[in-house]
Amino acid sequence: MNEVTSAPLTIAEQLRAGLRRLGKAVVVITCWHEGRRWAMTATAVSELSMDPPSLLVCVNKSASLHGPLTGKANFCVNILHADHAHVSQACSGKVKGEERFSQGAWEAAPDGTPYLRDAQASFFCTHETHVEYGTHAVVIGAVTGVSWSGDVDPLIYLDGGYARAARLG
């Protein structure tokens, strides 16, 4: 009887498999650049510092938002509510351009940066710097304002799909 063996996983494949086990809040990063709105669903977002208040976002070089963000556009990180899966889907994948704003209650900040009015939280940022690394750019933004709404119930991305956070205890 022939035994079927599979090729060992590359380090990148191992990393991807391991990261499927790391639940992350789903966000939509938005900006206003060269007269148009831009949006992209992401999970690679983190606080960087409280002094000065700042966030970092990681954006693939092939993403449409890469050019505006590395072009020093101000941006907003919108943490999605568990009921915002439709907003996440509209801001990713095959939907392009202005059509990404077809779902959700979008408004504009005074500088034109779009934000989701009923997001769990929206962090308004000015572009500070960015670093290109591998397939991505790491963009650092100085937080200039924060808004939030509703109860804490973020949309989570886990094992290739959406989930709700559950509190223990």
Rank of each mutant, 00 (worst) to 15 (best):
P154K: 07
E132Q: 12
V87G: 09
A165I: 01
A85P: 05
G134N: 06
G134T: 00
R164N: 14
G145L: 12
R37C: 11
T43L: 10
L15P: 14
A44W: 00
V95S: 10
D118W: 09
V77P: 01
H86G: 15
T5N: 14
T30Q: 05
V95P: 01
Y162L: 13
C91N: 03
S46A: 12
L80R: 03
A105V: 12
G145E: 11
A39V: 01
E99K: 13
F75N: 02
A73T: 05
R167I: 04
D111H: 05
I156S: 08
P68T: 00
W106K: 02
P110L: 05
G112Y: 00
P68N: 03
L48C: 09
S102T: 09
T5L: 15
P154Y: 04
V95E: 08
V95Y: 03
G71C: 07
G160A: 06
A166E: 14
F123E: 01
A109Y: 02
M40G: 01
K96T: 12
N74G: 14
H81G: 10
H136L: 07
L48P: 08
G67A: 15
R100W: 01
R21H: 15
A121K: 04
D153L: 13
G35W: 00
W106H: 03
G18I: 04
G169P: 02
Y115G: 05
